[in-house]
Simulated scan of single mutants.
Amino acid sequence: MTNVANVLKDKTSISVYTISPEATVLEAITLMAEKGIGALVVTEGEEVAGILSERDYTRKIALMQRKSFDTTVSEIMTAKVLTVSNATTVEECLNLMTDKHLRHLPVVENGKLIGLVSIGDLVKATMEDQKKLIEQLQQYISG
């Protein structure tokens, strides 16, 4: 089975966009809009301090009638971030995402952020694995 290291290697864009916990929510959503992404990893130095997603924004700013320009990222981010490592399998990631209702998982090695995998990245990897398996089985059957 494919692991996170393979998924990161095959990604077309390896950029991980981060933001400081002290940044305003307006800065965060502006960055997400500019980059066309749904989440930012909140970092302090090279360590993951949290994650900020569109879901956090919707539930903690829009629905609570806060203001994006004077609320900090640390006030609305998800602080208890589940992370994975290069060795984590795609299946383990998908199970974790399904169980915890997540769309993004930061990849951490030796306490340092090295990447980010999304549900889309993992579905793509799963489809590739299935395609390869089908090809192998067809070759086996046809001799």
Rank of each mutant, 00 (worst) to 15 (best):
K124C: 07
N3E: 07
R66H: 09
R66M: 09
K35I: 01
L113D: 06
V73H: 03
E135P: 00
S85R: 09
G111Q: 06
V84M: 02
L137W: 09
L31A: 10
K132I: 13
R55D: 03
C93Q: 03
L122A: 05
T98L: 10
Q65L: 14
K124W: 10
L105A: 08
L31R: 13
L52F: 13
L105I: 09
V7G: 00
T78H: 01
L122H: 04
E44I: 06
S74W: 07
Y57E: 00
C93H: 02
S85W: 06
E92M: 05
T71M: 04
L40T: 04
E34N: 13
R55I: 05
E109S: 13
T58R: 14
E109G: 05
A5V: 09
T30H: 12
A23H: 12
G111F: 02
Q136F: 11
V41C: 08
A28G: 10
E92N: 08
E46C: 08
Y17S: 00
L40E: 04
N95G: 12
L113F: 09
A125S: 15
V4P: 02
K131F: 12
T98K: 14
V90R: 01
I141E: 10
L31S: 09
G120V: 06
V73G: 03
V84A: 03
V123G: 05
S13R: 04
Q65W: 11
M1L: 10
A39L: 02
G38D: 04
A62K: 14
K132W: 10
K124F: 11
I134E: 14
H101Q: 15
Y140S: 11
L63W: 13
S142D: 12
A125G: 09
E109Y: 09
R103Y: 08
V25A: 07
M97T: 08
T126F: 10
H101V: 10
E27S: 12
T83Q: 06
L8Q: 06
V90Q: 02
A125Y: 05
K80N: 14
V48F: 02
V117W: 02
P21C: 05
R59S: 10
L26T: 03
I119G: 00
K124L: 13
L102R: 09
I37H: 01
N86H: 14
K100V: 04
T78N: 04
Q130Y: 15
L96Y: 03
V25D: 01
D129K: 12
L102D: 08
M1N: 12
S15R: 08
S20N: 13
R103H: 13
L122V: 07
I134Y: 13
E109V: 13
Q139D: 14
T98N: 14
T83F: 04
